[in-house]
Computed example of a mutant assay.
Amino acid sequence: MSKGSLYHHFPNGKEELLIACLESLSDTITLDIESIFSHYPTTQESIVAMIDKIIKKYETEGTITGHTFTSIVSEMGSLSDAVRKACISLYTKIEAIYESKLVAEGVSIEKAKAKALMITATIEGGIMLCLTKKTSEPLIVIAQTFQKTS
């Protein structure tokens, strides 16, 4: 693609292209999470199933693309406010899925918000550890921990 074509479709340049990619990835990630959560009766079972899916992808492909913005967000200091906001949007959507499932199980909205944040941080951290350590063990441990707790 020529530089002229890029700026024709994305007049604000590479940043606008990045934001379009982030929005597309956000839609893919949230649809996947919503699909998983709709197939299981509890938040706990949904989370374990989601983590199992991520583990299988890592173990078969050696990567965890399409499930996280972590690598992009880790460079947040150099990103613009618009890109940061696109990343916040995904995390907000993910937390809303978790929160909704928890509230449906009878958890208060306040506790559900706190638990949704904890779940997001735990899974995102687990993904980063898997990629860093080159093993799915961190996500396996997280899934086992969720299976043991209610």
Rank of each mutant, 00 (worst) to 15 (best):
I51R: 08
S35M: 06
Q144E: 15
Q44Y: 03
P138T: 09
D52K: 14
P41N: 11
K14V: 06
M128S: 13
E105Y: 03
I55L: 04
T68K: 02
L117S: 08
Y7L: 14
A116C: 06
F146I: 14
T60N: 13
D32C: 05
F146D: 04
T70D: 05
T92E: 13
L17M: 12
D32Q: 07
A104N: 13
Q44F: 02
E59Y: 11
K113S: 11
T145G: 09
S108E: 06
T43R: 00
T70S: 11
A20I: 00
G62F: 09
L31T: 09
I47R: 02
A49M: 09
S5C: 07
A49K: 08
P11A: 09
V103W: 01
K134R: 06
S100C: 08
T43P: 00
E16Q: 15
T60S: 15
L102K: 01
A86N: 00
K57W: 04
E95P: 01
L117D: 08
K93C: 02
I109D: 14
K111I: 09
E61L: 13
L102N: 01
T70C: 07
S78E: 12
T42K: 05
S46R: 14
D52A: 14
T60E: 15
G125S: 02
V107D: 01
M128T: 10
M50L: 09
I55H: 02
R84F: 07
V141E: 08
V141C: 05
M128W: 05
L79G: 00
S24E: 12
G4A: 15
T70Y: 11
A121Q: 05
I47S: 01
I142C: 06
I142Q: 03
V83E: 15
V107L: 06
L22N: 02
I47T: 04
S26Y: 04
A143N: 04
S38W: 06
E137Y: 12
E99H: 05
A116T: 03
L6C: 03
K113D: 06
K101Y: 08
E61M: 10
Y40I: 02
C130Q: 08
T120D: 07
C87S: 11
G4C: 10
G77P: 01
I140W: 01
I47G: 00
Q144W: 06
S74I: 06
L102T: 02
L79Q: 03
K101R: 15
A112I: 12
I19K: 06
V83Y: 11
T135N: 12
H8V: 11
T120E: 07
T92M: 10
N12E: 15
